[in-house]
Design a binder for these strands. Sequence first.
DNA 1: TGTACATCAGTGAACGCGCGTTCACTGATGTAC
DNA 2: TGTACATCAGTGAACGCGCGTTCACTGATGTAC
Lengths: 231, 231
Amino acid sequence: VPDRPATARARARVDTTDQIKDIARRHLAVDGPDLSLRAVARELGVVSSAVYRYFASRDDLLTALILDGYAAMGEAVEQAEARVPRRDLAGRWAALWDATHTWAQSRPHEYALLYGTPVPGYQAPRETVEQAQRPLTVGMAILADGVARGVVAAPTDRLPRAVRGDLEFIGRLPDFAGLPPTLLARAMTAWATLYGSISFELFGRFENAVHDLDAYYAHQVQAMARYVGIR
Amino acid sequence: VPDRPATARARARVDTTDQIKDIARRHLAVDGPDLSLRAVARELGVVSSAVYRYFASRDDLLTALILDGYAAMGEAVEQAEARVPRRDLAGRWAALWDATHTWAQSRPHEYALLYGTPVPGYQAPRETVEQAQRPLTVGMAILADGVARGVVAAPTDRLPRAVRGDLEFIGRLPDFAGLPPTLLARAMTAWATLYGSISFELFGRFENAVHDLDAYYAHQVQAMARYVGIR
DNA sequence: TGTACATCAGTGAACGCGCGTTCACTGATGTAC
DNA sequence: TGTACATCAGTGAACGCGCGTTCACTGATGTAC
């Protein structure tokens, strides 16, 4: 959290910027990713051109929302996981995914912006990618811990050569802490499953089928914990 | 496939309707779900109001695209699966998911329309839901066959009560052919995993990580076959 | 502490654009006798 | 087989709308001396 700026002007600038983003976030629910700058200005009670003092273009505002979204989610997930004692792997895993799920539920349109259909013609800047990786990194750290303590073992699954090659490469990246390919493969499956389930839930695929969505998600989290060897 | 209509006028109507939908489908790639009727008309070489002879509104056109999409996907999946000998469960499972994956890859923007972020304010008609269930039904039939032949067993997983209740209810629906809750739970997990993986692939989450996307997907399909007890 | 100047948030008008939808029309196609 | 009438695809003009972005402006806030 950066220091609050000294001058009133600078403080107002920060506040207004935040207000614009808050309003825009709310508009995501109605307009999706092609929210209207003019509508945001209207709600802020300001002439439309005034917004250009804060964001150079509509795309810039969208980029800010995306970046903020990834950062907020990363923050929420990291903090939730950090609260659990290090040796409680199952608890850490549950905290990671519960935080992810809760965050997505409470801000479904931001989740959709981050993990739904990409906006046509929009290209995310590099910085986005780093933020987006934070939850994944948390998950990998849990597994790496498990391996280091000898309580999580590498599965003996067979992997196609092409897949194994990619996974060996990934396993060598710093964030993935030397995880063996077969475990990485299962971790990526769990990752797809647990994000896939959130998307299904938020995008309405479970309607009329799953009634207690939280219980269902918690069950998926546990099933995937077992799948990756956390007990 | 309905009979080709008798009169030239009726035939022209069918052809033009198809052309409009084809053009609109192509425009999905650029405009996403808020494609422009006027742009479609322009490409068809016709004044914008002419399109209203074929579709009562923009939403109607979108609905037609969605319905066609689900139908085409259902058709592709059913046909691929039907080509495999009945007793080859692993082959049927692979055919189901390969067809799904291939269909999605070849029409990514239609896939996004069906399985991505829902269009804000758009409400799909009931008919859509039936079409959307076809691939799911195919998968369930494979498992039901396996159970009936005694080669797929119900896992002994523990299920939370709320989840078990939902799954017992689902298992009683005709399309789900009395599958036991623990198996249904795994089937739904597989379903989330395999659609989740397609979304990750098409929405760019695997970029710079997975290079051979087909091999990776095939591996996921196999992993999920094992997960649901098909060998 | 006071003054001169620089910075910058917000205004208001304008540009040029594309959109969905309606409506009265025309002329070609189809139907009934 | 020919004629009178009904159907309907496509036209062209119009309505009313909202959008992103630019630009010269004003007045309040901040800074340097």
